[in-house]
Each structure stands twice: as C-alpha cells, then as structure tokens.
Design a protein around this nucleic acid. Structure first.
Lengths: 195, 195, 195, 195
DNA sequence: TATGAATGAGTATTCATTCAT
DNA sequence: GATGAATGAATACTCATTCAT
C-alpha cells in the first residue's frame, strides 16, 4: 500500500493504541479511534479490514520486533546466557518506556488474542518463546543455569511475570522508574528470592 | 410454594465458570449461562442482579478463599518463609486442579476487573499481595531472602508468573501434571535460573 | 366468590389503587401490589385473572357507583336541572375526597382503558354520559339551558374539565380545599366566564 | 459521503406521531417507528437519543408553538378578552385539524409526561397556563368576566375540557366538523350552560 | 387457599461495517 | 481516496404469569 501524505495508516494505529489502552479493546469504538486519529470513520476501513485487524497489527509489529531482536541476541557469541537475557529484557523495556500505552494494551489484550487464536499472534509468541528457550538451554548446557528447570514452564513464568510488573509500572502514577523494575527483574531471574 | 430445587445459585455460578472459560466474559451470553445451568434466563436474575455480578462473585469467592489461607499461613511460626511460600502455592494449585475452568477464567478476566475497578476485586487482590509481602519481608529479615529485592515488584512478578503457568497448564490437553508445574514454580521462586 | 377472612380481594384492590396512583398502571408491578396488600404474589391471581383486571375492577366499581347515583338523580322530580347537576358533582367529589389516590388513578388511566376498549369501561362511561345528557336535555326543554349547545360535546367538555381540576387538586400539596374546587365547577357550568 | 436524503429527523417524528396515536406510547416499538418512517432502526438513534426523547420532541414543538401564539395574542390591544380566548382556541384547533393523530397523542400522553416530570413539558404547560391566566385576569379587571372565579382552577378546567372534546372529535369516524366543536367550546366558555 | 420461586417472551439500545456521494 | 450517514443484527434485562409444594 502506497504511503499517503500524513501517513493515515500509522495515525490510526497510534490512535488505536491510545484508545485501547484507555478503554480496553472490547469497549473501544471504531469511531473513537477514527476521531483520535483525525480521520473519518470510513477511512479506518481503507487501511484495516475490521476492528480486530487493528489490534492484530499492533501485536504483529510488536512481536516481529521482539523476535527480530531476540534472534540477533541468540546468535551473539560474545555474550553469555545471563547477558543475553539481560539484553532481551532491556529491549522489551525500552520499547515500553517509549510507549507506555503500548505496554497496557500488550498486558490486557494479549491473552484474548492467543485464546481465540486470532491472526498469527500465537505463532509469533511461540517463536519468541522458542528463541528464549534456546538461551535457557544454552545456559543449562554451559552449566550456568539449573538443569532441573522445565524450560517450557520457565519461559511462561518469566513472560507472565514481566507482563505483570510492566502493567504495575504502566498503571502507577506518576510512572516510577522503569529502570528499577528492569533491574529487579534481571536480579530475580538469576537468583530467585534466596540470598 | 415452590421450594428451591437443588441449589440454583451454585448451579448458575458453576455454569458461568464453564461458559466464561469457553468464550470469555464479553462474548458469553446470559442465556447460554442459564441454559448450561439448566434454568430459565430469568432465574439467573433471581440470584444475581446482572451479568457482571456473576463474574464478580466468582472472583470474590476465589480471593476470599486465597486470602483466608494466606492469613493462616502467614501466622504459622512452625514454618520458615520458604515453606510458607510453598504452602500458599500448594493451596492455589489445589484449587485450580479441582477446577481447571476456574483457572482459565481467573487468568483471562482478572485484569479486566482490576482495570475497571469492578466490585472489590482490586481490594481483595491488594490484601492478598500485602499478605504475600509479609512473608517476603520475614524472609529478608531472617536473612533467608535477598534484601535487595523490591518487594512490591516481586509480589507482582510472582503472581503474574503463576497466572501465566497456570494458563499454560489449563490450556494444555490433556492436562499435564500440575505437580510438575507446582514444583518448578517453587524451585524458581527460591533459586531463579542460576545453579 | 365467598369472602375470605380479612377480605384479601378488597385488600388487593385498595393496595392497587395506591400503587397505580404512585407509579402509574404500566410501571406498577404485580409484586408491588401484592406486597402492599400483604399477600403473596400468587394470591393476587386467586382473585383477579391478570393485572389489567384489577384496574378494570377499580373503574367498574367507580362507574357503577357513579351511574347508580346519576340514575337516582335524573329521576328526581323535586330538583331542577341545575340542582341535579350540582348533586352529581357533589357525589363525584365526595368519592374522591374520601380517596384521593382513586382520583389520580381515575384521571391517569381512564383514557387508556377507553382507547383500548378494555372491559366494559367505555360502555359504563357512555351510560354515564347518556344519563348526564338527559339532565342537559331536560334543562334545554325547560328553557333553563341554552338550546344552542351540542349536548354530546358538552358532556365531554364537562367530564374532561372535571377530570383536569380533580387531578390539579389531587396533586396539590397539601391538598387544598376540594369544596372550593367543587363550588367553582358548579359556578362555571352554569355561567361560564361571563358576568 | 452519504448526504442526508430528505429529512429523516422529521420523517421519524411524523411517523412516531402516527405510531403513538395508534398504539399508545408504551406499546409502541422503536422498530415500528423506524419502519413507518422508512429508515433502519439504528437511524432513529442518530436523531434521538432514546424513545422517550421522540415523544418529548413532539410535545416540545407543540407547546412552543402554542405558547408563542398565546404570547402574541395576550399582547394585542385591539382585541377584548373574549376575542383573545377565541383566537387561542382557533389556533389550537387549527393545529389539530391539520394533524388529528397529533391530537390523539396530545390527549393520551400529556399526563404521563407531566406526572413523571419528563423533559420540560411541565414547564411549558405552566407557561401556557400562566399566559391564559393573564387573559382571564384582564377580563375580570375589565368587568367582562365573573370576579368570583378561581382563575387557576378555571384554566385547568378549560384545558381539560378542550383536551376531552378534541379527543372525542379525533376518535370519531369520519372526523366530524371540528368547526362545530370549536364553536361550542367558545360558546360554553362564555356563557356556561345557562341561557 | 396460599405461597413465592421459576419461567421465558418481549424490546430498547449499541456499534461494527457499508456505501452513496 | 475520503467521508460520515445509514444500516440492522445482536443481547442484557424485566416482569406478568404459572405451578409445585
């Protein structure tokens, strides 16, 4: 699709993130999104076939980006597994620092999309988790990580935990330091609660 | 007069858990719940003032139970903090083992209720987190847990992580061993990924 | 129907007058009537086949009474037509003085029943108007009343006017003197506005 | 864009008058109004926020018009009070001659709106009555009208009487001469029944 | 007779999507 | 491409009536 002047497609996407963050996907009206984007209601349908496809696009971009970064990270031979995990977490947090509303949408709507097998978000998510798994496997192989862990469970635990603290952070007013959050997550992943 | 046959209030609640788990709260129709409960549509409104109150009741019961158990656990002087965390986790998992659909509803709808400050679920959740915090504080004080952790962040991380693995387990078919999940959670909480 | 102890049939009717006066027929619930009457919901249906029949019974009694009085009045040879009209008006007002809620129901619901040809209220009303017509005819014949009047129109005008002032009186708080209302009506019927 | 074809707002209002006249406000379905107006159900809500607002709009227009005419009439110094009353009555009747269904709605639903203090119909009505009162006061002052009348009562009596004869006329089939009705009303207002 | 829990048909309103301009 | 008025399917909730006890 040729980019139009002013890039309405992106305007609509950005507006949708804000509206979804405020009201939640189900309670958001297409008309509100159009209004927030400064376009007519009908114009939304020139760029997206339906309301759901807007949400899907948001997640598609996000996961594509996450996965790309993770792929690059996995490959690196100059980092040990602990540093790799740090790098991934840094990337996730950087995205959400730049766009807190995106963090809210991510936390609130991800489950819905996966449950209902919408688009290929589930696929994206699986890819991401598989890549994350590689790092953990590497750590186990290199005797840095505990070999008793069930890697599939851990990757779920970690992403769920991150989603939860992100939400906590995104909702807190005024937004407290995300760096503090980031540091604690890294610390916990490595050491758990114990000294 | 017509005596209450069986326990319609409970029948409706149980049916709602199943219907909500299958379709999600927003896509569930009151008529479907009534049908699943084997009662007429109008009968639902004899026991619950509206659709949302059914969801609220589900969470109210759940959190009341969780909080009660946690309170009992916190008090115990014969257990160290690690054992206390184990006990709480055991209780959560036992509930969900007995009713996997409840786990699905819990994972999917909790955020919606808290975001929109529905009922006193947010309050319940805060209470629960505060109690969990006490155990962590105790652990830090007794030099069992790492004093550098931000307790508020950790309690969110942990509950988010647990929600996520529960969901993973509840969706897997046939339901794999929840004991494996439970064990790994306990392990991870203590040690993180490192050896 | 054999009268039961406590006379539930009448209790229900009296309660219905109050409830209808407060909320209007359409917004009144059968359950509210039962509650106001101190009986169970189902008991209402032992005495009346449905909600509408309660309203019909109220009007049936009222019009039967009105018509009976009017019949007696028309017959009297010791009164001239002006005195006869006074007598009828006195009777109407006496009923409503004794039960202001009845006046409100009468004013508000009469039209609905006639429009929809419910029961034989229309018939009752016609009977009443026909009898009233007789008095007017008598007055015209005796050269007391204006022969140019269209009697059918006048009887409607008069009953509509009376309904309106009754409503005005019933709604006014504290209920002002109904005697004042009564006097003015009589005065106006005879003389109109002119001196 | 899709231009507003014709005048849907007015089409809906006109259709509503017909539907309300036929079935009464409470028994009228929004879908029936839409169908009668030749628009989709949803389109009704583009022009009116809810069903009641349609009824309110009908009365608002009517009373605004009545009050405007009455204001003009009260001012005129070239008419005596009797002529002024005639003028007002003429106006009312002209409106309803042009739209008999409107007369039916007016008669049937006015009370409901006033009882329940919907919109500002009560206010409109009070304004109208106050203006009418001025004419009567003028007549009393000029010794044309009887000074013994209670003006507030009379204005209610008159409007109630008119409503009643209008209803009688609107229901009669085929609609008989409204001029006959009009003439009798004027006659009665002045002279009452007496010669 | 009396009860009141149970029933289920009926309806106002919303909002994603379309399409005439 | 752009618009926004128009569409109509979908659904929570009410309440007169029934009927098992």
């Amino acid at each position: 699709m040729r980019k139009r002047e002013g890039n309405k497609e992106k305007d609509i996407l950005d507006a949708a993130v804000k509206v979804f963050a405020d009201s939640g996907y189900h309670r958001s009206k297409v008309t509100s999104i159009a209004e927030a984007a400064g376009v007519a209601t009908g114009s939304v349908y020139l760029y997206y076939p339906n309301k759901e496809s807007i949400l899907l696009k948001i997640f598609d971009r996000l996961w594509t980006d996450f996965t790309h970064t993770l792929q690059e990270t996995v490959k690196r031979s100059d980092y040990d597994p602990v540093q790799k995990l740090d790098l991934v977490i840094d990337h996730l947090f950087n995205i959400f620092v730049a766009n807190p509303a995106l963090a809210v949408v991510f936390v609130n709507e991800q489950q819905y999309l996966i449950n209902n097998k919408k688009g290929n978000i589930g696929k994206h998510y699986e890819n991401f988790l598989d890549l994350a798994e590689e790092i953990i496997h590497e750590g186990v192989k290199k005797k840095i990580f505990n070999p008793d862990v069930d890697v599939k469970l851990y990757r779920h635990f970690i992403t769920g935990g991150i989603r939860s603290v992100l939400f906590y952070w995104a909702q807190s007013t005024p937004s407290s330091s995300l760096d503090r959050v980031r540091l604690n997550v890294k610390l916990f992943l490595r050491n758990g609660l114990l000294l």
